[in-house]
Simulated scan of single mutants.
Amino acid sequence: MGQPLVTGLDHVALAVFDLDQAVDAYGRLLGLAPEWVGGDGGARHAWFQLPNMALDIIAPAGDGAFGRVIAGHLAAHGEGLWALAFAVADIEAAATLLRRRGVGASDPGAVRTTHLDGRKRYWTTSTLDAADTGGMNILLVGPPRDGQPFPLSTAVGEARAAVTELDHVVVRTEDPERAIAVYGAKLGLDLRLDRSNPDWGVRQLFFRCGGAVVEFAASLKTPRGEGPDRSGGLAWRVSDAAAVQARLAAGGWNVSDVKRGRKPGTQVFTVREGAPGLPALMIQQGAPAPQED
C-alpha cells in the first residue's frame, strides 16, 4: 500500500479584519503565543503552531494579490474560516492526481512569508477549485523548502491551562455523499466512522487526517441539498478542561460549564464568543466525567 495522497492537516486559515485584535484574542483563547507574525503579498498573518497542525490568522494589509483575495472573502463572507490546508509529500504529484480525479488544482507555486524581524520562510501550495470540493477553499501544502518543521508555539502561563492540539474541524454539509466522494475517494482521507443519530438529528462523517479529524455534519431533518459546505467551528484538545475553563471564565470569556461529552471518557465545554470563528469546543480525552447534580 503506497503513501496516502494527504499526509495530515497542515493548517486551518482564518480571515479577519484586524490581525492584532484577532491574535490577541486567539492567544488568550488558546493560552499560546504565536510562533510567527509577518506577511507578504498584501496580507499580514500570525501562525500558531501546534503538534498536529497550525492556525493561520490572516488579514489584508496594503496592496497585493493575496491581500485582495482575503479582502474579497471578508466582503462576501465576513470573518471566520477561509481555507483548510492539507499536507502532501509531493505537491506536483498530488495536484496531477487530483486533476485526473476531476478536481481542478492550480499549478503549485512558491509562497513566501516575511517575519517582522526580516526572517523569511518558503513553502509551496496548490489551490483546489471550490466548485469541485463542495464549496470549501482547500489548499495542498508541500513541505517547508528547508525541510525543517516549524517550532511549536509556547504556552503563556500554566501549560495545563493551554490548548494542546486541534481535535477536529467541523464542516456543515447539505450533501454527505458528496463529502464522501470528495474527501474520501478523491482526497483519500480515511473515513473512520459514518454515524446517524436520530436523537441528535444529525449524520456525522469522521475523516482521519494525520493527527486530527475532519468531521462533516448533515441534518437528518432536511433533504439532501446542493448548497456549499460551510464551517461549523473548531474543537480543541486540552489536558485539563477544568483548568482551561477556569482560566477563560476568569478572563471574561463566555463559556459553558464543563460537562460529560458524547464520547465516553471525555469532558467538554464550549467557548461561545469572543474571537473570529467561534463558537469552539474544548475537549479533554480520557477523563472521568464531572459529577452532576
Rank of each mutant, 00 (worst) to 15 (best):
T270N: 10
E226K: 08
N197T: 14
L29N: 11
E273H: 06
R44C: 06
Q21V: 13
E215H: 06
N137W: 01
S256D: 13
L281P: 00
G80Y: 02
E165Y: 03
H77W: 08
K186D: 05
G2I: 06
P151D: 10
A250Q: 13
F150L: 15
A15N: 10
G102L: 09
L29H: 09
E215I: 01
M53Y: 13
G265W: 09
E174T: 08
P198V: 08
D18F: 01
G157K: 10
G41A: 12
V182H: 02
L193H: 03
P143C: 00
G147K: 09
N52M: 04
T113V: 15
T270G: 02
N137C: 05
N197I: 15
R203I: 08
G286M: 10
D20S: 07
A161Q: 06
V12Q: 04
I57N: 11
A218K: 03
T270Y: 10
L32F: 03
G147S: 07
A242M: 07
P264T: 14
L50F: 04
A249M: 06
D63R: 13
A13W: 00
A218I: 10
S256N: 05
D20H: 09
L281Y: 04
G41F: 04
S196A: 14
A241E: 04
L14S: 10
V255K: 02
E92C: 04
G118S: 06
A54N: 05
I91A: 04
A280S: 15
G184E: 04
A13I: 00
D129I: 02
Q49L: 01
D129T: 12
T7Q: 12
H115I: 06
A155Y: 05
A105F: 09
Q284W: 04
P276F: 11
S126Y: 05
R262Y: 13
F66A: 09
M1T: 11
A212I: 15
P223I: 13
P60I: 14
A25P: 11
G118V: 13
F206W: 11
V169G: 00
V156I: 15
V16L: 08
L5S: 03
L84D: 04
K259P: 01
I91W: 01
P228K: 01
K120N: 03
Y26V: 05
M282Q: 03
L248Q: 05
P60T: 15
G38E: 06
G201F: 05
Q49K: 11
D20N: 10
L14E: 11
K221C: 00
A212T: 15
G38N: 10
A59S: 13
H77F: 14
G227E: 14
G27Y: 02
R121A: 15
G184Q: 07
L220G: 07
I283G: 01
G252T: 14
